[in-house]
Design a protein around this nucleic acid. Sequence first.
DNA 1: TAGATTGTTAATCGATTAACAATC
DNA 2: TAGATTGTTAATCGATTAACAATC
Lengths: 207, 207
Amino acid sequence: MKSPEKISEAVVRRLPIYLRYLLQLQSREIHTVSSQDLGTRLNLNPAQIRKDLAYFGDFGRKGIGYEVDYLIDKIRQILKLDRTVNVALIGAGNLGRALCNYTAYQSDRMKIVAVFDASPAKTGETISTLIVQPMEELSTTIGLKEVRIGIIAVPSAEAQQVADQFVAAGVEAILNFAPIILKVPETVRVHYADFTTELLSLAYYLE
Amino acid sequence: MKSPEKISEAVVRRLPIYLRYLLQLQSREIHTVSSQDLGTRLNLNPAQIRKDLAYFGDFGRKGIGYEVDYLIDKIRQILKLDRTVNVALIGAGNLGRALCNYTAYQSDRMKIVAVFDASPAKTGETISTLIVQPMEELSTTIGLKEVRIGIIAVPSAEAQQVADQFVAAGVEAILNFAPIILKVPETVRVHYADFTTELLSLAYYLE
DNA sequence: TAGATTGTTAATCGATTAACAATC
DNA sequence: TAGATTGTTAATCGATTAACAATC
């Protein structure tokens, strides 16, 4: 892996897209793929794909393309997904449930290992293999289970407060489903999963 | 509204973000806001906000800022949300449920008016005020209820097929939660709500 | 009038794409 | 060898930001 040189967010965000499609190819026992193929399938420019990958090393072979297994390994390394990363979720509503079940199969080395909810009505319930815990246990559990990423799936009104608790407990990154901008220290990375923006902006394109 | 000149996707995607914050200001009875205020709150550059809005007209007043009520009206017009837009959802799992409940309160003129699921075990169930219908009724219901946008909340393996049915039934736009690229006619706009990409890319930024 | 803030132009910055020598 | 495809440079394209005259 080359490294030095700052990688843009756009590039990093495409890596999981490559990874996902490569895993599909792997399961279909396809061993080699060209930037051309990838581009066609993922609606991306082949030059862009080659450039993205070349930031991290020479993974391809001229005249041949990329070896699927090898590239999967490499992208996992880049994304630090060569080991399992533990994730905690706050909010055991429908969305929280969906996320747990989703990462249960699908997970590519990201695993939800704890679920919390502020409502006593929810704590004690089971979601896939996990028991919903009360917020009081957040800090201890996060330390114990070495959780590094937190997911926020609570209503907007509670999101900031819940983020503060994640930060205090020492998580390094947050995925926020609530449609508000969180205030967190610079050292904590926040990504937003905001489907309302996507949905409302669709309306603009109606004939 | 000015119009002519093609508006970039980036601009359109910020409009709902402005709208959401403006609605918050409105509910707090704040009547005026500057691009400075908006920028601070939304982590955006004030010049960018002014430029975004100026594509569509002169909505502000020099020395004063933007009138909240007026700007809300204007953005709604731009997004074609001055009337309710009807939406249909396929997939009555946890994610589908979350989406229904979400748009039930929150909705800014976007309303889910029908839910479908392929599984007989799900059809007949109630989600908020809606009854889950079998796929056979898709086409008729979409015509009847004047549905213009479809949401896909089914597993990846079924997503393309479900998209085809939406297209055949005449929806104009699709929001896809399944992490695959859909093939649809150019006339149909597709947005992707892919939280796995956001989650996996977070790992890259772990210390 | 003085202070604030817009709309807009020009400058900057960054990301995407085209093109091609290198080479399998 | 001929064909395919990479890695990379240079060209293009587009988006963001700074700056400021206009004006409330």
